[in-house]
Amino acid sequence: MLYDLLPSLICKALQSYDQTKLTEIRIRRNCPIVINYQGKNILLKTADGENIYSDKEIIEFILRKATENSLYAFNNQVKQGFITARGGIRIGIAGESVNSDNFMPKTIKDICSLSIRIPHEIVGCSNLIFKFICNEQIIKNTLIVSPPGAGKTTLLRDIARNFSHLSGTIFNVLIVDERFEIASCENGQPMLDVGVFTDVVSGASKDYAFTNAIRSLRPDVIITDELADENDVNACLKAVASGVKVIASVHANNLSELRSKTEFERLLNSKMFSRIVFLSFKIGPGYCQSIFDENMKCIYF
């Protein structure tokens, strides 16, 4: 999947690296290409040891491949600063925003930077956490907190999978995959293993997907990625008020950072989440540092 997106020069250079340890490729116009390998940023080099520089053609090539020559089908994503290519590969983009009269972005032009994030499927990475989330067939509302790149999405995917394997009963799991990263659906079919009792709504906002799916799909638990603003928080509160359990993730380094955002402070004060899981880079992506209950009492360290 990744090699389908990249020019042969970069593909050749990447062949000497273990793909399972490669998490990100940074491409900036007329600058050396940087990869994140085993958690460290390093310069991508040719076999001769020369730095590989990116240019306009390389960026256009990747964009053309990622959008499958169908930019119109991705414009809603482009407006939000990313493209999700096949296989759940998320490409963050930076360029010049083209705004409409009311200053809403219409698209991004002159794209000069790409951040290609490579998803990894780590089967079993949630086994430890899962018993805190789902015990004796009772599901706990769970918030997974970590800085970017610490494995929230990988963990959420494995939690969804584990509901089909470890829960001991059949729960209707719904994944609200706003950015196509958790299940990486193609033509509606998940390309990554998210379990056999899982429905996936891709590309829709959390607010829209939560409201409609609760009415029509009757999920027992909703799994979603990256709560970002008040709308997302409200969607979660509404879902819980409807009797549906929620497992979500959020960007923050620690509890105080999380509390500094008003909407999340409100969420924590509501004691909606009975499990708050903190991840860290200490051992690798998906490493669970600590788990707190709704009263912020540490139950795992």
């Binding site: 020559n69 119109y72 414009n75």
Partner: peptide, 9 residues
């Protein structure tokens, strides 16, 4: 084909 947004297409 495929090189612009929906309106322009």
């Amino acid at each position: 084909l495929g090189k612009s947004d929906q309106k322009n297409q």
